[in-house]
Design a binder for these strands. Structure first.
Lengths: 111, 111
DNA sequence: ACTGTACTTGAAGATGTTTGCAAGTGACGA
DNA sequence: TCGTCACTTGCAAACATCTTCAAGTACAGT
């Protein structure tokens, strides 16, 4: 292995670090979708979506397959769903904690 | 909530997308550490480490506390450990798959 | 008060990422 | 064959991140 593991991990997280790519993975972890379906759901320029799909493809997280006139994508690693769930849990925890902190710093409550 | 959830998620993953920050979280998820300890383990300029710690702090993933002459950090969300474990699993899966694919494309094996 | 150790901060150049446009490919039906 | 829909690619400007240096704060020991 040329790159140390922690570097590979960082790269992996970096490929998840984009709103469009997150949305794509969320949609694909529900079920496979053609590009025009993703496009209808995400509201982004086709070329941009294509670029982001290419990033996910290069990272080996999704798979592409032509079906007639359209191109269908699917997640190639099912655990991605699990990762997104854990991430949401952490995120909610952090956000809650931050808002609690904010309340403690602004003494303007208690009726 | 001002930012949509998928954007917050992307930002969250982006803060994990750096080798030094990954190493820090790995070390801190084992046990708390003072900055000079992290520094000894990671091999990076002090100021750089400090910057990365600040990023993790702003994201609410770690907590800082002064203890005498030194500053001790700890993870503030225990699930981070779980996330790193799931991430490693996915990563190993992807890397394996890619190397299998590479073997299939280079027909130079089988004794 | 002075020196040293432990960290943090600000700023700026280098480096990487994102975005949208224009152009290109592939499959299908008229 | 021609037009059209579905996608992808290359490229350059706009934007964000990373790294390092120099300077600054905080505390402990002398």
């Amino acid at each position: 292995m040329a790159t140390p593991l922690y570097q590979a991990k960082a790269e992996f997280f970096r490929t998840l670090g984009h709103p469009v790519r997150i949305r794509v993975l969320e949609l694909l972890s529900e079920q496979d979708h053609a590009v025009h379906e993703l496009l209808a759901a995400i509201a982004v320029e086709p070329s941009n979506l294509s670029q982001q799909l290419a990033v996910l493809r290069r990272a080996g997280l999704v798979r592409q397959s032509r079906e007639g006139g359209q191109v269908v994508y699917s997640v190639s690693v099912p655990e991605v769903r699990e990762l997104l769930v854990v991430a949401r849990r952490i995120l909610v925890g952090v956000l809650e904690e931050q808002s609690v902190l904010k309340q403690e710093l602004t003494p303007e409550s208690s009726p």
